[in-house]
Nucleic acid binder design. Structure first.
Length: 303
RNA sequence: GCCGAAGUAGCCAAGAUGGUCACGGCACUGGUCUGAAAAACCUGGGAUGUUGGUUCGAGUCCAACCUUCGGCA
């Protein structure tokens, strides 16, 4: 066997981790995080690393807040972890809310992932107005520029990445050469709920994290890192920048943070909605957990 | 009870001398995404406290009423 992978995804505050821990116990599994923020050391309360200490979760606490990270790196590491867990004849359980990271596992054939970021180019382009970036890309690659939708044309990150790809030498090696992902048997469960159900849960969790001492954690982080470090561009941290640096009110920071969490949850729902081969589980419905265990059980024992 | 100020979407808020049924921001909605993704973007709907009056025409002027805030009692 040993080609099965269980994925638990979904927006924030749906109880993914708790569920995944239960599943891991029952099915002899090991957890792999798919979370772009829990990879940062020191960002604990704000990113929700509140799972029991005796539970091992792979791919968290990988780097410090002044380092940057990306999907391609995640993909590589996740493949390694999956392989290790399979070798132990255990079930890898991917749990997280970063849709892009999960996508890199489910659909690994992303050719451009081998094209590395060009720091110099990014530094240069990042200080230009978007209209100029557009013109540059238009001149370089008129055809592709015109095929972009409105959202992409106004998105400097995406435009810069496209320019980066244009300048790189073509013919990126396919990851499929390594044979990763070709024979996996994946069950992808995505937790979901109406926003009217999610928002109150988010709100209480925000309050809870403040009570747990988030502000002290931020204070401590600020002794070593600065607001411009990539790790601090994270919900639960970035909203407190004005509070700490300009003396803005705590209430404003908290409500800003809360609303950012709502918007984040919406984006996640939008992302997962259009992914293929997902079973959605509405956690606002009763007995959703038993539905999950039934589904997993059937999948685990068959095939 | 009297005097003053104010009432524009869930919240904040613009609106020279009355004239395209009203600027924005937040929230909320739907969407985009191939090495920044808890990122970075695109999109949509919703309002002039109430009732009258003046006027060709009122958020803008007048009256009454209602509500809120401040002061005096």
């Amino acid at each position: 066997m040993s080609n099965k992978i269980l994925i638990i995804s979904g927006p924030t505050a749906t109880g993914k981790t708790d569920l995944a821990i239960k599943l891991a116990k029952k099915y002899n599994g090991e957890l792999i995080s798919a979370d772009s923020r829990q990879i940062y050391q020191g960002l604990n309360i704000g990113t929700g690393k509140d799972h029991p200490q005796n539970i091992k979760i792979h791919l968290i606490d990988l780097i410090t807040p002044h380092q940057s990270f990306s999907v391609a790196q995640y993909q590589k590491l996740a493949f390694q972890e999956i392989a290790k867990i399979h070798q132990k004849n255990k079930l890898p359980i991917i749990v997280g809310g970063t849709g892009q990271y999960i996508d890199a596992i489910v659909d690994p054939n992303k050719l451009t992932y081998s094209i590395k970021p060009n720091k110099f180019l990014r530094y240069f382009l990042n200080r230009l107005p978007n209209s100029t970036i557009q013109k540059i890309y238009q001149i370089l690659d008129k055809k592709n520029f015109e095929s972009l939708n409105n959202s992409e044309k106004h998105n400097p990150h995406r435009l810069i990445r496209k320019i980066e790809i244009f300048f790189s030498k073509k013919s990126p090696p396919s990851l499929l050469k390594e044979g990763m992902g070709v024979d996996w048997n994946i069950l992808h469960l995505s937790l979901t709920a109406p926003t009217s159900f999610l928002y109150p849960r988010i709100d209480t969790r925000v309050q809870k994290r403040l009570n747990l001492g988030l502000l002290d954690e931020i204070k401590k982080i600020l002794t070593q890192y600065s607001w411009s470090d990539p790790g601090l561009n994270t919900l639960a941290y970035k909203e407190f920048k004005d509070y700490f640096s300009v003396g803005a009110s705590l209430a404003d920071a908290q409500s800003k943070w809360t609303f950012d969490e709502h918007a984040y949850a919406r984006r996640q729902l939008t992302w997962f909605k259009k992914q293929k081969n997902i079973s959605f589980i509405d956690i606002s419905k009763s007995k959703y957990q038993s539905k999950i265990f039934t589904k997993v059980n059937k999948w685990y024992n068959l095939s």
